[in-house]
């Protein structure tokens, strides 16, 4: 079965595998497709057709709208070229969105990996009550981003909760209402730098998603046989060296998966921001998803909204496509 799968792949992408001997190709027409395969095709066909129409068809449709003039309530499908894209990249709000997305993604993924890895190593130390800790850290994942957003909106509201306690010590963080840009410099029409307010959103997102990377890493750690650690110890490696030289390299595939999954969450994030901060003063916590929603459904700029959607798709594709390609190579 596995062999057949590979063959099928080759039929679809013959040019991507030039190293295959030609002889093998000639054999193919003789092969009969077995009944099992027809059954598989029969089962797959409906969902394949539906996905083709309702996912790829509509992506194509969105792409078409994004180069049209449809920016009012009246649909207008005349061709506008790249007008909408040019408008967006000159737009203050969209530039701010891109800046926020960059910093949010870097901070979010970095922290999720560091904290997930750290916690999973701690939990992996065969401590008592392990499952309790694991459940505690995993629990936030059971919440929706909207719930997380509302909770953290109040936790990090400068005038409520423990911020009043902090104020007793003279610490008054402004969290997501802070409009400062750290290390900012002029770039286009915006100030490029780390928006302080985005840190508050990152905290909420990390709180929610750390459990996920923890679970992934824990599974990875469990998959590393004890013999390897023992062997390293026999060779005189310290515990630190074991982690650095043996365990972490072996966790690399997990890290890649976590990065891919977190990247697609963070690039498309909408619900957390919408529930927690909205666009923020001066758009310090705005992201493309929120802009897309508002410009399309409040401003009736359908073509602009479609263009934002396409840009978001391309951003995610930058992460996903290399991953998929690499996967295919290693499967083959």
């Amino acid at each position: 079965m596995a062999e057949q799968a590979v063959d099928r792949q080759e039929q679809e992408y013959p040019e991507s595998r030039p190293q295959q001997p030609a002889a093998q190709k000639e054999k193919k027409p003789k092969k009969k497709i077995s009944g099992d395969q027809w059954v598989a095709v029969g089962f797959l066909a409906p969902s394949f057709i539906l996905v083709l129409i309702f996912v790829y068809g509509f992506i194509g449709w969105t792409g078409w709208v994004s180069v049209s003039n449809w920016n009012t309530l009246v649909p207008d499908f005349s061709f506008a070229g790249l007008k909408n894209y040019i408008y967006l990249f000159n737009d203050y709000r969209f530039q701010a969105d891109l800046r926020n997305t960059v910093f949010f993604t870097i901070l979010f993924i970095g922290l999720v990996i560091v904290m997930g890895l750290g916690l999973s190593i701690l939990i992996d130390q065969k401590l008592r009550g392990e499952s309790l800790f694991r459940n505690i850290f995993l629990f936030p994942m059971a919440l929706s981003f909207v719930v997380t957003g509302v909770v953290w909106q109040w936790l990090l509201n400068p005038s409520t909760g423990y911020n009043q306690f902090l104020a007793l010590f003279g610490i008054q963080p402004k969290w997501y209402t802070d409009t400062n840009i750290l290390a900012g410099f002029e770039w286009g029409s915006i100030e490029f730098g780390l928006p302080v307010a985005i840190i508050a959103v990152v905290i909420a997102a990390v709180w929610q998603m750390t459990g996920f990377s923890l679970a992934m890493y824990l599974a990875g750690l469990r998959g590393i046989p004890d013999e390897l650690r023992e062997a390293a110890r026999m060779d005189g490696a310290s515990e630190f060296q074991i982690y650095k030289k043996v365990i972490l390299p072996m966790l690399m595939p997990i890290t890649v998966s976590v990065i891919i999954i977190m990247a697609h969450i963070s690039l498309k994030i909408f619900d957390l921001i919408y529930a927690m901060t909205g666009s923020g003063a001066n758009f310090v916590t705005d992201v493309p998803g929120v802009y897309m929603f508002e410009t399309t459904f409040r401003g009736n700029y359908y073509a602009n909204g479609a263009a934002i959607a396409i840009i978001m798709l391309l951003l995610v594709a930058v992460f996903i496509v290399p991953y998929l390609l690499a996967n295919r190579r290693s499967d083959g």
């Binding site: 920016n71 009012t72 309530l73 203050y92 709000r93 409009t179 666009s279 003063a281 001066n282 758009f283 508002e294 410009t295 409040r298 401003g299 009736n300 700029y301």
Partner: peptide, 19 residues
């Protein structure tokens, strides 16, 4: 004004409140 203008005005005001 039309919704399109209102959306843009709201964005401009949002920026103005800070800047």
């Amino acid at each position: 004004a039309a919704e399109g203008f209102v959306t843009k005005a709201n964005q401009a005001v949002n920026i103005f409140v800070t800047q």
